[in-house]
């Protein structure tokens, strides 16, 4: 038997299911076998419109999308929404391969992506530069951050901190946060090879929380109480400052759709919910900047 992929094959399996159900087996073992086969077919006999809405991509947007999905399901209890991480680029690949209905991307689309995908901005986000609570450094300019991450400044002392080697924490290649950071801060400078690479916001947070010498970056909404986020160019990283444009490190949170394919109604409903006043209020209360 083939693996069930498209809607056409479902209908074929429906008919097979029907036959299996009316067949009266002579032997017990054949009966079991048929029951088994029937169950397997039955598992595949699901209308494609019942498939959950898959939202895949940026781990920065993931927690917000999960929250939105939860709220959405309170209003529409019959639907299911699966939110998965993987990274911005993985999300865009997932919609290209039609694994996902909606991709999440935490950076602007690249040119080649722009030609096949449509982006819907659901919120804006500030990028916080985070250090350990005990770090006395409070305020850095973008140039200083750049010098830190390119390896020109190797000790916190030269920034007015304690005499400690700087421990850089980057995100992995393909991460929207990384790409947004490089675009906003690095300005063609190469990131130091000494930088540790971590695969998720959670991992960065865990490291910075415990290491007095660490510096990393993450979405403003994810910083929480355990880390200290630095002022950049003298501006405190707050949602209002991002909104007013004074805080320079900001990036869009995007839902990405394939331009020439029909969006399923459930996915459309979810997007409408996210862009509705309620959805936007939820995002705002989580520290993001609403777009509508």
């Amino acid at each position: 038997m083939t693996i069930m992929v498209s809607g056409h094959e479902y209908s074929i399996f429906f008919s097979v299911c029907g036959k299996a159900a009316v067949y009266q087996p002579q032997h017990r073992s054949i009966g079991f076998l048929l029951l088994f086969v029937f169950l397997i077919f039955f598992a595949g006999c699901k209308d494609s419109s019942d498939r959950p809405v898959n939202v895949i991509g940026s781990t920065s947007i993931q927690p917000f999308a999960e929250l939105l999905a939860e709220e959405f399901l309170k209003i529409n209890p019959d639907e299911t929404i699966d939110v998965q991480g993987g990274g911005s680029t993985a999300g865009i690949q997932a919609i290209a391969n039609e694994i996902a209905d909606i991709g999440m991307c935490s950076r602007t689309l690249k040119e080649e992506e722009n030609s096949v995908d449509t982006a819907i901005e659901i919120a804006r986000d500030g990028l916080a530069v985070v250090v350990h609570k005990s770090n006395p450094v409070n305020d850095l300019t973008i140039e200083q951050i750049q010098m830190l991450f390119s390896g020109q400044i190797q000790n916190w002392k030269s920034l007015g901190g304690n005499d400690m080697p700087v421990r850089l924490i980057m995100r992995e290649e393909g991460s929207g946060t990384r790409e947004a950071f490089i675009k906003l801060v690095m300005d063609k400078k190469i990131v130091s090879r000494k930088a540790l690479v971590q695969e998720s916001n959670g991992a960065v947070k865990e490291l910075v929380r415990l290491d007095p010498a660490a510096v990393g970056y993450m979405s403003l909404g994810l910083v929480g109480e355990e880390l200290k986020s630095l002022h950049v160019n003298g501006v405190e990283p707050l949602a209002e400052q991002v909104k007013s444009g004074k805080y320079k490190l900001s990036r869009p949170f995007l839902f990405v759709l394939k331009t020439n394919s029909q969006l399923r109604p459930q996915a459309q409903e979810f997007i409408d919910f996210v862009l509705s006043d309620l959805g936007q209020k939820i995002l705002e209360s989580e520290g993001l900047i609403r777009v509508k």
């Binding site: 993987g86 990274g87 993985a90 992995e172 290649e173 393909g174």
Partner: peptide, 9 residues
């Protein structure tokens, strides 16, 4: 290295 970068390379 493979696992970190495969996702998007």
């Amino acid at each position: 290295n493979i696992a970190l970068e495969m996702g998007y390379a």
